[in-house]
């Protein structure tokens, strides 16, 4: 049903979309919130990836200031319950959190794209099996499985990334599936088919490049979801474990200090919220920028 309506999109739109990312950025700049979010995210990434090179205090070392020290020049955000520099931990923790989000997103994109593209391209029983499987996975409250899996498989960063990715690829698969169905019908794909190109070549050379904008949108939203999931499992004590700091386990750690030093929980919580918010705004903005209805306005 979806496919038939999609085919009605005029050729003119197609060429607009194909003419590149510049237009995307241009449209994005018209959406103020999304634009601000993008700038903010770039700033945060610079801060957490380059910041530790400048701010050389160890995130795990015990500071002379002792535990729960107040904000000062030496420790701009004070020290935590064990006497470690909170600012340094926020930077390193942010780095791990963002890397986990990014890695989980990439992995989820890989799974989602393969499944979605194969289902859309090959049709037939491949489509039935893959899409039914995707729907089934969507129907299951995946958090239950995430918990069971992490309890028994352990909480190494790689395992956390894999489990988060396995719980979050379904939406991507659906988007890619829909797009593949649409693009498969275009003449240039049919032409390639007629000229005897292999299926894999058609998929990778002709179809997937067309879907990239949609994948970027899904990816952006998936990062947001992955960061949230990471922090949620950390809250339950099943995420990445200390001494590696992440915003999630810093937040979990601070819980017991909710009575005596609530600020320890406010900082990582606020950081997670703002970053996730920015990714969500950016994702929404990108989607609007890609939406033909939006362009007409």
């Amino acid at each position: 049903m979806n496919a038939s309506t999609n085919i009605n999109i005029k050729k003119k739109d197609v060429f607009k979309k194909r003419s590149g990312k510049n237009i995307l950025l241009q449209r994005l700049s018209r959406n103020k919130i999304a634009y601000v979010s993008l700038c903010f995210l770039i700033l945060v990434h610079i801060l957490v990836f380059i910041g530790p090179l400048v701010w050389k205090v160890s995130p795990t070392g015990l500071q002379d200031a002792g535990a729960l020290a107040n904000w000062s020049l030496q420790h701009p955000m004070g020290t935590d319950d064990l006497g470690r520099d909170v600012f340094s931990r926020m930077l390193y923790g942010g780095r791990i959190t963002l890397i986990v989000g990014l890695a989980a997103m990439l992995f989820a994109l890989l799974i989602g794209t393969i499944i979605g593209a194969c289902a859309g391209f090959f049709r037939g029983y491949v489509e039935t099996v893959l899409m039914r499987f995707t729907e089934a996975m969507m129907a299951i409250p995946n958090f239950f499985f995430v918990l069971v899996a992490l309890t028994v498989l352990g909480t190494s960063p790689i395992m956390v990334v894999i489990v988060i990715a396995l719980s979050g690829w379904m939406e991507i698969a659906r988007v890619v599936y829909g797009e593949t169905l649409k693009w498969k019908e275009y003449e240039f794909v049919e032409a390639a088919n007629a000229s005897g190109a292999t299926s894999i070549r058609i998929l990778t050379k002709y179809i997937i490049p067309q879907i990239i904008p949609s994948i970027i949108v899904s990816g952006t939203l998936t990062i947001a979801a992955a960061i949230l999931t990471e922090s949620a499992i950390s809250y339950l004590g099943m995420g990445i474990q200390p001494p590696t700091p992440t915003w999630g386990n810093m937040l979990q750690d601070s819980q017991q200090y909710i009575w005596t030093a609530p600020i320890l929980g406010v900082l990582p919580g606020a950081a997670i919220t703002i970053v996730v918010l920015a990714y969500n705004f950016l994702g929404d903005g990108l989607r609007d920028a890609l939406d033909p209805r939006f362009v007409k306005k």
């Binding site: 795990t60 070392g61 015990l62 319950d81 064990l82 474990q241 200390p242 001494p243």
Partner: peptide, 10 residues
């Protein structure tokens, strides 16, 4: 966990 992180540092 807290204790062992301090032991590690020492």
């Amino acid at each position: 966990e807290a204790v062992s992180q301090m032991v590690q540092q020492y």
